[in-house]
Structure formats: structure tokens, C-alpha cells
């Protein structure tokens, strides 16, 4: 029994169809990627699952709960990181996590959460002056506040430098080790390859293909496709990380 079941989900805005009948399942403990260009309908799909938007038609079930009818119960078992990360500007990191733990009636230890995402030293700092990577990590800490079964990450590494991006990858992998199910959207293919067990490729509101990254690559090469890129033993990013190190810079 998959933990997330999506059946023929549709969302229309006036005369624009953002999502045109999407169906997929996600198994417990899986990292599932939604890939697609900007405007493909990734965020709308995720926001319907998070209970922020109502679908025009179709059905979505998370852990036996209907996301529309049992919206409140669903929100209690999921952790959410939105695409544009924003919190109250005039509260400190600690106060923000504390406030959200009250909203989720959760008893999580806030210091532990902050340590886990590497923000413990900054806990007294206000939200406003934080770097992009720090804001992302704060929103991860907030997403973890209710010890959720399912985590939704919407473009978690967009705009981050290579160090911060790798740090985010490590965090996401550690959540999978904890047994959490993760749905993430991205338009970085190397990110999907690194993290996702399976990916759905979405374009114009429809899923074109669902499979594991390895199978998708194999399928393409079997069809006789040859990349025009030269295959090298390392990428430019490897060079960059090798020269500048893995440690985070923003602190």
C-alpha cells in the first residue's frame, strides 16, 4: 500500500489548466521527484497535496487521509517547505521554530532541530538578514517540527551555491535514512539523479513518464541516443568543490 496515492488530479484557473490529470503513487520511505520546466505544474500539484490549494477534480490520499476532506489531519503528518521561503522578518530563528511548534502542538526540542540543520549558533539572529541557504535550512527545521511522515520540498536548492546545495542533499538523504517519505520538485537533473528513487517528468500539466533515473537513462540509450557531451571522469562542479572545499560559507 503506497503512502501517497494521486488519481487523475486536475486544477484549472479560470480558463488556464495548470494540472491536467496527474496520477502517481509514492511508496513509504521513497524519495520521489517531480521534474519539469518552469510552469509545468509541479508546484500546483505539490500545493494540492499540502492542502494549500483545492483541486478542481481528482483525488489525493496521504497515509489513508483525503487531502481535501481531511485536510487538517493531513497537515499534521506532513512537513512542508515552500518554494519561496518566508517567515516573520522580525522574529529570531529560535522564535520562528518555537511558534511553529506551537501551531503544530508539537513537543520537539527546538535546539535539537536547529542543530540538525546547522543553525544552532545562529538561533538568536532575525530572519531578515539570513542568507538564502540559511533561510532554506530554517524552513527545513520548521518542516520537521511535527516529526512528519511525509516531507514536501519545493525546489529546495534553487539559488544556492554548490556548497549549500550539497549540504541540502546530505540533509535530504539523512531524512530518508530516518524512514521519511520525501516528495521533491526540482529542475536540476543532477539533483534528481543524486537523490530520487523514482521521478515523474511533468510538462504542460501532465506526467510524461515515471521511472527510476537509471531506467530512464537506460531506456533512452537503448533507443540509440548518444549524448553530444564528452564523458569525463569529473565535472566542473567537482573541480569547484575540490578547490573551495565542502564547508558552508555563509555563517
Amino acid at each position: 500500500m503506497p503512502i501517497i496515492q494521486v488519481e487523475n488530479l486536475k486544477k484549472n484557473y479560470d480558463d488556464f489548466e495548470a494540472v491536467r490529470g496527474i496520477s502517481f503513487d509514492v511508496s513509504k520511505g521513497e524519495v520521489f521527484g517531480l521534474l519539469g520546466p518552469n510552469g509545468a505544474g509541479k508546484t500546483t500539484t505539490v500545493e494540492i497535496l499540502e492542502g494549500i490549494r483545492k483541486p478542481s477534480s481528482g483525488k489525493a490520499i496521504i497515509n489513508h487521509l483525503d487531502v481535501v476532506k481531511d485536510s487538517k489531519a493531513v497537515k499534521n503528518i506532513i512537513g512542508v517547505q515552500l518554494q519561496s521561503v518566508n517567515f516573520f522578518e522580525m522574529l529570531s530563528i529560535y522564535e520562528i521554530v518555537e511558534l511553529f511548534s506551537v501551531l503544530y502542538s508539537s513537543k520537539s526540542n527546538i535546539d535539537d532541530l536547529l542543530k540538525r540543520v546547522g543553525l544552532y549558533e545562529k538561533k538568536k539572529s532575525y530572519f531578515k538578514p539570513l542568507s538564502g541557504g540559511q533561510k532554506q535550512r530554517l524552513s527545513i527545521a520548521v518542516a520537521l517540527v511535527n516529526n512528519p511522515k511525509v516531507l514536501f520540498f519545493d525546489e529546495p536548492t534553487t539559488g544556492l551555491d554548490p556548497q549549500a546545495r550539497r549540504n541540502m542533499w546530505d540533509l535530504i538523504k539523512s531524512f530518508q535514512k530516518d524512514g521519511k517519505t520525501i516528495v521533491l520538485t526540482t529542475h536540476y537533473m543532477e539533483e534528481a539523479e543524486e537523490l530520487c528513487d523514482r521521478v515523474a517528468i511533468i510538462d504542460e500539466g501532465k506526467i510524461i513518464k515515471i521511472n527510476s533515473p537509471e531506467n530512464l537513462i537506460e531506456e533512452l540509450t537503448k533507443s540509440g541516443f548518444k549524448t553530444s557531451k564528452k564523458i569525463r571522469a569529473a565535472t566542473l562542479e567537482d573541480v569547484f568543490i575540490n578547490l573551495t572545499g565542502k564547508s558552508l560559507r555563509e555563517d
Binding site: 499540502e50 494549500i52 497537515k75 512542508v80 515552500l82 518566508n86 517567515f87 501551531l103
Partner: peptide, 21 residues
Amino acid sequence: LSYKNQGVMRRLQATPISPSH
């Protein structure tokens, strides 16, 4: 206005609380 511009309202919407809270 500033909460809406900052996108805070959307994040609150994803929590189990009701708007009245």
C-alpha cells in the same frame, strides 16, 4: 500587507491551524 508580501500567510496556510487563530 507585509505578511502577504513576505509569503508568510501561505506558510501558515500549510499548518493545521484555522485562519481565525
